[in-house]
Write a protein that binds this DNA or RNA. Sequence first.
RNA 1: GGGAGCUUAGCUCAGCUGGUUCAGAGCACCUGCCUUACAAGCAGGGGGUCAUAGGUUCGAACCCUAUAGCUCCCACCA
Length: 881
Amino acid sequence: MEIAKTFEFSAAEERWYDFWNNQGFFRSVPDDREPYTIVIPPPNVTGVLHMGHMLNNTIQDVLVRRARMLGKNACWVPGTDHASIATEAKVVALLKEKGINKKDLTRDEFLKYAWEWKEKYGGIILEQLKKLGASCDWERTRFTMEEELSESVIDVFIDLYQKGHIYRGTRMVNWDVSALTAVSDEEVIMKEATSKLYYLRYKIEGTEDEWVTIATTRPETILGDTAVCVHPEDERYAKLAGKKVIVPLLNRPIEIIYDEYVDKEFGTGALKVTPAHDRNDYELGKKHNLASIDILNPDGTMSPAAKLYVGKDRFAVRKEIVKDLEEAGHLVKVEEIKNNVGYSERTNAVIEPRLSLQWFVSMKEISKPALENVLNENIKLIPEKFINTYKHWMENVHDWCISRQLWWGQRIPAWYDEEGNFVVAKTADEAFEKFKIQNSKLKIEDIHQDEDVVDTWFSSWLWPISVFDPKVFGGGKDYKGNPDINYYYPTNDLVTAPEILFFWVARMIIAGYEYKGDKPFTNVYLTGIVRDKQGRKMSKSLGNSPDPLDLIKKYSADGVRVGMLLCSPAGNDLPFDDSLCEQGASFSNKIWNAYRLVKGFDIDDSIAQPEISKIAIEWFDAKFNQQLAEINDLFTKFRLSDALMATYKLVWDDFCAWYLEMIKPEFVDGKAKPIDKQTYSCTIIFFERILKVLHPFMPFITEELYHNIAERSFGDACVVAKWPEVQSYSTLFLEKFGFAIDVVAQVRNIRNQKNVHPRETVELVVKSSSPDDSFDSVIQKLAGVSKVNYVNEKPAGAQGFMVKANEYFVPLTSNVNPEEEKARLTKDLVYNKGFLESVQKKLANEKFVANAKPELIELERRKQADAESKIKALEEQLANL
RNA sequence: GGGAGCUUAGCUCAGCUGGUUCAGAGCACCUGCCUUACAAGCAGGGGGUCAUAGGUUCGAACCCUAUAGCUCCCACCA
């Protein structure tokens, strides 16, 4: 049968993925095996696969596939996140395109659109993950806003409220003027900007021409000023005590206050105070009992309280007011300064500090076990450097603003009566019951539910629990859980990006301890960020992100997986380049061709096994076990890049370049000789082992070849094959073989230097005091040596080299240039003499001999002896020339 | 402003508690081969004062100190 010259991956990928899925190999239900569990970081339901997902999910799949082969009950739970603010923003934009304004819709109407959209476009990303080969248990697919999971979110809200960990209060929050909602501190991206610092003078009340000059980057907020603040020890302003200044344009008098908060060095040392629009001013306002004037509408336009510019956008007003101030003679000067401006992570709008009534989780108490159990390594962060970052954050954790002025999400279970009193309850009926205790005259129509929803992360922090048992949270003290959660929780590994260490990882840990009394996972593998060749973050706006599906089409899923993993140590950024995938694809091709070779062998069970094949088999068996031990070790350390590279070399160098070359039958008269049965069987066994070790990285080609190299019974597939166990092996044999490898390399080197054609054979002459001919067959076949002669005297006119204390010569009919040979030998001699000198110096050093370990001294002595004999041989050779 | 980490070959990175598995790997590069598994390949080769300057030590890429550059996290002086 003719075997295709290249692996037709596209068809194979589809075929094998369906096969795995249909056979139920990804399905997991509790049994008596040890579980191995990963919950996917749920991608945004409206998301499409990008390179970050590729990396992240490739890693998870490698881990899951290997665990499955190790005989564990592997369970990878997939799902999507409703991503309230991002999705809502998307739906709003879409409706706008259709000419529908969110403001004109009721909550129910809007949600209907949103759900429709979600049903139609949501979850595309999960289908895309299948193309990558992700071995998720698709029957367990979850969505954070499905009914059960939403209920668990509400249960948690109520529970935390009852425990006193949730409170409602007026605080300065980060306001997204575009999405019209509060966002948490973590959702604000600070960016450095060059801003203008305006020096404005305020007239002192009751004077004709006395002024106080302040400096501000936000002149429009002077309309909300309620004080000017100076440092109590600032002599320049001491005389102002008890006086007032006049707010320009408005002619409103405000008081002068003294506080050490002010930096005397900055600007003029006088600060205007706008408690409604600045975090620090708010604190000052509270301390000094200042009035607070909110001059902005939620959308960032000026409110009636501003009195001027009402309805105009804050940035337009900034320009306008500067002009007006200048005309009125209040603008003293303008400077440029660098400062930081906060932007909304989701809408990129400039964040406005805004005073508003929101719900908060008090973090101090509930986050304690989460810090403790990372510090004591009950939960391991990989790489470890993130522990410090984590610690720093947890020790300074702020209360978490969890209410969002959005509709897409879990609605806050708080109910209000007409006076604004509230109760927290699961349903309107329950809330009504609670109200009735206070106010018997109240009717159910008089109460209404909070309009806001909770932060998305307030739902996804429950993910590792709720995917298995959403009822846990409402179950009460006596609830024993279901078989799934008791079996799968805590999960094993979490693979995610460091960017969401606080957003998500820390909070899952908090929720885990709060609700299960146990960690949600043992290992957190933090991946790097995928960047482009120039080191820029991949982003839509830069257009520098390749479409992962295109890459898969071009390079195969296996190729892309290998490409992603080749260069991605944990926590390090991945400078991505297509050529990495190309390397992966080449590797695939190499494996395919090894298969073509082996499959093309003509088997003859009547012929005896050649000596070289015996050696090859013994050697590869040892080499494989040595490498497998190494690969296993790298896996346990989560060094996947290195594990892949070790596998790569095992396959390419050891199996293909050495083993197959050794056992490959010769060509005689343009025809390959047959191979003996024994060697062939061993080769198939080796091939099978290699496919297994490759499988987590390259699932498709390995599954294909696993079935092609041998007959398989029903249910026997690479995906569920048993991971090879490390057998004992002889390191001595590996060492001895290494000697043969050195000889081969040296002969090849000479052949290359002398331009000996590959098909031309050479002779090899050995002068050795302890000749060992056991690897002659290897040397002959791999170095193109016709015969190996053992002699006592060096032959004349031959190119030589040394391996250990043995001298080797390749007699060549021509081309031996005595001058070149002399130069080569001299160079070698000089090096060895220098080397000997350094060793002797070391050994002559009393302190070294006294302090170093005995083995080390022994080693140095051996080095000395080796070098001495080598020098002697070289000198003889030189003399003979 | 506070904290963490990094700097080793052209690129991306390994180098565990100081001592030939200490100067390594893959890719890239150079040379020669279209040798019937693979030119997406084979064989060979050249590349590094281990950021800089001191120190500790018999011995430093590795430990200490300082300097420079880069990255990230936290805070947010208007």
